[in-house]
């Protein structure tokens, strides 16, 4: 079994009377990409800042590779690479100079600097001043800074901010590579579910300072072998009533009507059959769209699930 590299136990933080973080516990293992999902103001950044001790926690334990981040701060921080909010660099210096500053503190040689620049694709523009960089380039330089010393834990706060789709994909690829090949534990926060789904192995959802849901993500490429899995699709048809009837009769499911569209949850290998059946029966299909589960849905589910338990 993979080792736990980042362990958070019963973390709590209060500002005044308001509990910002309420008894959070997490475990992140080697080679795992852990998504930390939540809307703005839910406590994602605060948690991350407490791991990095930018903010002092009220109670709880945070351990990095077994080192308590309060008692053995410097040892714990040795294994961490992190970007919080925006990557912070010195604008009047070149990207390379910024890297060199960090390299000196981390005892890293110039070879590694080249490697990292290559990895994030900034090699050609490393000697330009950072103020000339685009936001995406700054994000990539920030990533380079965190990867410089080959951290065991990589903590990224909203890393996809300001990145274009190509940049997001590149980031995803880099993260997957270092996590799955080099065994780095990656802790990523975001408020966008789709990003997380594509990137993460595990997701924890945080809302109002509490973890409301924590689950393994079933990746498409992994589940293909199983042939089928449940998926929600949205079908837009002209003849709604007829379609509803057919679906009820032939597939024995309960379609929902959402804003004039039919929503069904069905095993994925059944989808072609559904389409075929509808077409045969002259239901004019305008669109069949896989429905993404929104963040709100997750919260909704999570809270509903919570109520059931009570």
């Amino acid at each position: 079994m993979a080792n736990t590299v980042l362990e958070i136990k019963n973390l709590t933080k209060t500002y005044g009377k308001r509990k910002i973080i309420d008894n959070i516990s997490l475990e992140i293992k080697e080679g795992e990409i852990y998504g930390f999902l939540g809307p703005n103001g839910s406590g994602k950044t605060t948690t991350i800042k407490m791991i990095l001790r930018l903010i002092e926690k009220d109670s709880g334990i945070i351990k990095v590779k077994g080192y308590d981040n309060k008692k053995e701060f410097e040892k714990a921080m040795q294994y961490i690479g992190a970007i919080v909010e925006n990557p912070d660099m010195y604008n009047y210096m070149s990207g390379l100079d910024n890297l060199k500053l960090h390299a000196r503190l981390r005892n890293v040689d110039s070879k590694r600097i080249d490697e990292v620049l290559e990895l994030v694709g900034l090699k050609d523009r490393a000697k330009e001043k950072v103020k000339k960089y685009s936001l995406g380039m700054k994000q990539r330089l920030g990533l380079a800074l965190t990867l410089l010393h080959k951290p065991k834990v990589l903590i990224l706060d909203e890393p996809t901010n300001g990145l274009d789709p190509a940049g997001i994909k590149q980031l995803r690829d880099i993260l997957k590579e270092i996590a799955h090949k080099e065994g780095v534990a990656v802790f990523v926060s975001s408020h966008i579910l789709s990003e997380m789904q594509q990137m993460c192995d595990k997701i924890a959802v945080i809302n109002n300072g509490k973890i409301v849901k924590s689950e393994d993500i079933t990746h498409i490429e992994q589940t293909e072998e199983k042939q089928s899995f449940e998926e929600t699709i949205e079908i837009k048809v002209k003849n709604v009533e007829k379609a509803m009837e057919i679906l009820k009769e032939k597939f024995e499911i309960q379609p929902k009507l959402v804003e004039g569209n039919i929503n069904i949850t069905i095993l994925s290998d059944q989808i072609p059959k559904v389409v075929k059946e509808l077409a045969i029966n002259d239901v004019e299909i305008q669109a069949v769209v896989p429905k993404e589960q929104s963040l709100e849905d997750i919260f909704f589910d999570a809270t509903k699930g919570g109520k059931k338990d009570e």
Partner: peptide, 14 residues
């Protein structure tokens, strides 16, 4: 105020 203090605070230095 610019946040670049984090540049140092995130390194293993007290």
């Amino acid at each position: 105020s610019t946040g670049s203090i984090k540049f140092w605070a995130l390194t293993p230095n007290k």
